[in-house]
């Protein structure tokens, strides 16, 4: 489905699930759009959608719609192309109730120990389904359904940098301190987010992210 959210932009929604396969198809469509459409200025892939922004000098909505409709049909057929996403990102996480205010309650509510919850969170190789919200934030999926929970009804005014949160079937890391509504279950040493350039370029849509559990002592050591 193609809509036009602005005078020089198109938003394509592929009729596929927002998962590893779905984002790979969206990235395939992104490559096609960048090659086939004139004067593409920005593209944002996110979940099963692609936003394309172009130039007012060359934008013909009928032509764009025809091209993208045909391309979208191709992109949902067959095996999606392998995305160019670089090496998997591996991050240490300390699952300690002192560092993660929702960890104990969430584990208790799910009938799990903290260690079991940590194991279920860190055993999945996640895929980056979208980047955004804040610079360097990545929406990772899919979370094990046994530990999935909706976001907090009221966001916290302050979430510490490096906090690992979950919301429904997504998980992610707050790269900087700020308000946030995801349930917090762990902490990545914030030193890993100190460099702005590294922070912003770490996650790429379609890429793989793994977590490895570390104890409090190792966490403190990484904090320096």
């Amino acid at each position: 489905m193609i809509t036009f959210p602005g005078p020089v932009s198109a938003l394509v929604t592929l009729p596929v699930p927002a998962d590893r396969d779905g984002i790979a198809r969206v990235l395939g469509l992104e490559r096609f759009a960048r090659d086939a459409l004139p004067d593409v200025r920005a593209t944002i892939p996110a979940f099963n959608r692609l936003l394309i922004e172009s130039s007012p000098h060359s934008w013909d909505p009928e032509e764009v719609e025809a091209l993208l409709t045909a391309a979208a049909k191709e992109c949902i057929r067959g095996t999606p192309p392998e995305p160019e996403t670089g090496e998997p990102v591996s991050l240490p996480v300390c699952y300690d109730p002192d560092l993660a205010p929702d960890l104990a309650d969430l584990a208790a509510g799910k009938g799990l120990s903290v260690a079991e919850l940590a194991r279920l969170h860190s055993r999945t190789a996640y895929v980056v389904l979208a980047t955004g919200f804040a610079p360097g934030f990545a929406y990772l999926g899919d979370l094990d359904p046994r530990i999935a929970m909706p976001r907090l009804p009221t966001p916290r005014r302050r979430v510490e940098a490096g906090s690992v949160g979950i919301a429904d079937r997504r998980t992610g890391i707050y790269p900087a301190a700020g308000p946030g509504g995801w349930r917090l279950i762990g902490r990545v040493p914030p030193a890993l987010f100190a460099d702005a350039t590294e922070r912003i370029s770490r996650f790429r849509p379609g890429g793989t992210v793994e977590f490895r559990a570390i104890d409090r002592k190792s966490y403190q050591a990484e904090c320096g």
């Binding site: 932009s9 927002a18 944002i44 996110a46 979940f47 979208a130």
Partner: peptide, 8 residues
């Protein structure tokens, strides 16, 4: 359900 890319 899932966040959507925004335009100006």
């Amino acid at each position: 359900l899932d966040s959507t890319p925004l335009v100006d």
